[in-house]
Structures are given as structure tokens and as C-alpha cells.
């Protein structure tokens, strides 16, 4: 039984704090026991129960709890989402190296099977926790809550949460992040925002990666921007290459502006 949320262990989600112990943790429901002190008879007739409960209620509650934790410690938590291979881990590797000494970082890596990405982050000298979701195609707030328990990110740090590569369902699961950052690369179609509108609608920043490949692929930058703005007129869009480094400074400025803002609060 886990003390924080009352869940039972034993299931398919595995959490690895790199360089430390590991423990498996359950895919399970959170049951709330109740006492029958309201004095009634168990009638056999049919009763209508007004439920009116959001299906994502449990996830949203734990997300709020994570958010409270981040606020209390003044941690800037960012949820990074993309299709597989768009460059989430590459962007983190570059960022962690380039801003080392300027900002304090911690990383949660979500992946179905391997710890490859966490190993890449670990190599930069940053504190990292891997969540393996098994068959699960997204992170949820409960997994993040447990990852946080072991890692204890520092006050005033930036916490990157790399979600499972998937532009569909991670859109529905609030992790308690401050902002959601969606990454696409120029080797993907410029209609991505229209195909995955939920993700672009719920993100505040869109990073278009691999612009070093623009000469070789049929990718219309203006079109992707127009499509993204149709879905979410408030979306900020940055163009970068993790390989050449082009545009990364604007991303670093964005990041620092967010840290400065959260320091004021």
C-alpha cells in the first residue's frame, strides 16, 4: 500500500531513479472506503444515482496535487509532447548542456519500455527518473506523483517531463504541469496541427525542430504556422535545429523568461 495515495502496488508501471533502487508500482484504482452509518434498508427496487462525475476526475485531482507541489517549491514543470522521433530527448540533451550552471534542472522520462532516453539524460549529469508505462501510451498524474517521491527536485528548478511519443492521448491527461510544449519536426507533414488538434489546442508553445533539414523536405513553414494558429491562435511557435543549434537561443530565452516569471510569484 502506498502511503501517499493509498494505492496498492503490483502492476505494469515501473519507476527507475537512475543510480538508485527501483520499485514497481501498480496500475490500479484508488478506492475510497465509506462507512454505512446513514441508516437505510437495502431495497431491491431500482434507484437512479445522479453521478455527474468527470471521468478524468481522479487524474485531475492528482494533477492538482502535483501542481500544488510545484507551486510550493517554485518548480517550473513543463510537459513535452510529440510524435516518436521529433526530437524531445535531443532538445533536452542540448538544453541541459547549454544551460548548465545557469538553471537547475530535473527530468522525468516517460517511455513504454527502455531506459535509453533516461540514460542519455543521465549522461549530461542531470537528475533523471524514468517511468516505463509498459503498454500505456501516455503518462498520467499518478505516475508523475510517484516519480516525484523518489527524485525530490530542488526548489526553483525546471522540471522537464518527456511524455510518451504520441500526439493523441497525452493531450487528455493533465500531469500538473505549468505549460505544455508540443514539438514537431520538418520531416512530419505540415498538416500535423489539423490532424492532432487536441494537442495543439492544449499547448502554449510549439517547437518546430530539425530546420537544418528544410532544404531536403517538402515542408511549408508558413502553412504549418497558419494551421497551428487556426487550432490555437495563442500558440507561440519557435523554429530550431537541435543538430545545428540554430534557433535554440530563442528557446533558451523563452525558458528563462518563464523561470523569471515563476520567481516573481
Amino acid at each position: 500500500m502506498c502511503a501517499t495515495c493509498g494505492c496498492d502496488s503490483g502492476g505494469s508501471t515501473a519507476i527507475h531513479h537512475l543510480g538508485e533502487h527501483e520499485h514497481t508500482h501498480g496500475a490500479h484504482s484508488h478506492s475510497h472506503s465509506h462507512s454505512h452509518d446513514h441508516g437505510h434498508s437495502h431495497a431491491s427496487s431500482k434507484t437512479i444515482v445522479d453521478v455527474e462525475q468527470d471521468v478524468l476526475h481522479q487524474n485531475n485531482l492528482l494533477a492538482q496535487r502535483n501542481r500544488g507541489y510545484f507551486d510550493a517549491k517554485n518548480i517550473l514543470a513543463l510537459n513535452l509532447v510529440s510524435s516518436p522521433g521529433s526530437g524531445k530527448t535531443s532538445l533536452l540533451e542540448r538544453t541541459l548542456k547549454d544551460l548548465k550552471g545557469e538553471l537547475e534542472f530535473a527530468v522525468i522520462e516517460g517511455d513504454q519500455q527502455t531506459t535509453n532516453d533516461a540514460d542519455r539524460i543521465h549522461a549530461t549529469g542531470t537528475k533523471v527518473t524514468q517511468i516505463n508505462t509498459g503498454k500505456g501510451c501516455h503518462l498520467d498524474s499518478h505516475m508523475v506523483l510517484h516519480a516525484l517521491q523518489g527524485m525530490k527536485p530542488k526548489d526553483n528548478s525546471v522540471l522537464f517531463i518527456e511524455n510518451v511519443g504520441n500526439l493523441v492521448c497525452p493531450a487528455m491527461f493533465d500531469l500538473g504541469e505549468k505549460e505544455r510544449v508540443v514539438i514537431i519536426s520538418v520531416t512530419e507533414g505540415d498538416d500535423k496541427p489539423l490532424k492532432y488538434p487536441d494537442m495543439f489546442h492544449s499547448s502554449t508553445l510549439c517547437i518546430v525542430n530539425k530546420i537544418d533539414l528544410l532544404p531536403y523536405v517538402p515542408f511549408d513553414m508558413e502553412k504549418v504556422k497558419a494551421n497551428a494558429k487556426k487550432v490555437n491562435p495563442a500558440l507561440e511557435i519557435l523554429e530550431v535545429s537541435c543538430t545545428s543549434g540554430e534557433g535554440l537561443q530563442t528557446w533558451y530565452n523563452w525558458l528563462k523568461s518563464r523561470v523569471a516569471v515563476s520567481e516573481l510569484i
Partner: peptide, 10 residues
Amino acid sequence: ELKVKSLVVS
């Protein structure tokens, strides 16, 4: 919306 609105139980 994505919610459980009501149940009929017996």
C-alpha cells in the same frame, strides 16, 4: 464533456 452522468442500480 466526458462524464458519468447517472446510474440505475438495484
